[in-house]
Design a protein around this nucleic acid. Structure first.
Lengths: 228, 228
DNA sequence: CGTCAGATTGATCTGTGTCAAACCCAGTGG
DNA sequence: CCACTGGGTTTGACACAGATCAATCTGACG
């Protein structure tokens, strides 16, 4: 499997950090290393020290925390162009989440020192990093309310809509993004069996269709109504 | 009620942003306005546009979101030295939370423009803002896991410990911070009645004592065990 | 084909939410 | 000084969403 070259990486990075000059991005990528990860491998684990952060060139990952019972809570999914691990770098703390690949991935590792140097040197970069942190913060806050107040069914509908929004759908409404029922339930924050039952309910109501992991949204307004 | 002068404000600000030179802080406070809020008033409301952020000089506030059923989910409590509203300013989005005073408060309003100017001018300030955003993000992530996986009783124990940690206790273990049962339940993410019942359980187990809003932690290790 | 992870369905149990009623107590005004 | 009021607190009874455990089914892949 061929790795992309640095130029391609810089290009991809530019798509996420639109206002940062290419030149500055290039300097960020001087000391980075590109690496291939097979599906189902850990990039880093919760509570371990990480000495840099990661830029996802291609593939998808899940970012999650493991409870004492061993049950995972997925905080979010990452797709190409996403950056993660920066919280630990900035706070100089051990990682508060684990990251595991859901598909084969190409990742770019950005060492601690490079990251902080850039944050201190480039106003635009640090401003855009701040944007990202604040977006995640807003999402997290919203998620707290929803997980605390809404029914599981309602959250499931919401999550399906989020998937459609973030990862896109085929013309017929089939989600481009698909995960196991277990991961889905760990994201919604419920038991796998419950999730399956509620998904069947949505099917029975004609709102979605599913064949294996392929889930098709048939009635978006209807789903929105359930998601409130 | 006398308002503090700008110097006092700058002083207080310096305690939160330790590495920012006083001179830069002073420039931040040139266009700010200081205001007194009575207990129980809104500083701003969810979904409204706010044109600046707030620095809490004294008092306590709750930061929350309201669900469609009218039930509030408290995201966090704020005390003197805290800053809030910056997420909306940075993202240039409407507020995603409401803020209401829990006591009489003195607040310092920092306009949008001043804030972004400072972020662009001062590396140290923007780095410390980033620290704050990342801390909140870590807290929020942790909270998502807990609310999704732990029992209410366990979360209650945790919240009591957090209060002790963040707001301090009297020598006898009585929490300095006290809120209504309703606010407490809205923070824990449960019904008020459930919260009261579980608090009584903790009392029966000899872990806490309570007279009205005064809650005393009698057995911290025991509480930690329940909080896991 | 056999195997094994993942998906599904069924039966049962329980933690929490909800609704209703009673209680406590601080502050107000007659 | 005492009754009155009302917000906050507490307790009780009950219902149900969702968890858990167990069993079966499916389909991809060597």
């Amino acid at each position: 499997m061929l790795l992309p070259d640095t130029t391609a990486c810089i290009q991809k990075f530019k798509e996420t950090f639109r206002n940062v000059p290419l030149q500055e991005i290039a300097s960020l990528f001087q000391e980075t290393s590109l690496q291939h990860y097979k599906k189902g491998t850990f990039i880093y684990r919760e509570n371990t020290h990480i000495s840099g952060c990661y830029f996802l060139y291609s593939g998808t990952v899940k970012i999650f925390q493991t409870g004492q019972t061993g049950k995972d809570q997925i905080i979010r999914f990452g797709k190409e162009g996403d950056i993660f691990g920066f919280r630990s770098v900035i706070r100089n703390e051990p990682a508060c989440t684990s990251v595991e690949t859901l598909s084969d991935c190409v990742l770019c590792y950005i060492p601690n020192t490079t990251m902080t140097r850039m944050l201190m040197q480039s106003h635009v970069f640090s401003y855009e990093m701040m944007q990202i942190a604040c977006k995640e913060l807003g999402d997290a806050n919203r998620y707290i309310r929803e997980i605390a107040q809404k029914s599981v069914k309602s959250r499931l509908a919401e999550v399906l809509l989020i998937f459609a929004d973030e990862f896109g759908t085929e013309p017929d409404g089939t989600l481009r993004f698909n995960v196991t029922r277990e991961d889905l339930s760990n994201f919604v924050g419920t038991a796998t069996e419950t999730l399956i039952r509620l998904l069947s309910e949505l099917k029975a109501e004609g709102l979605v269709e599913s064949r294996g992991r392929k889930i098709t949204l048939l009635n978006i307004p209807g789903l929105k109504k359930i998601a409130e």
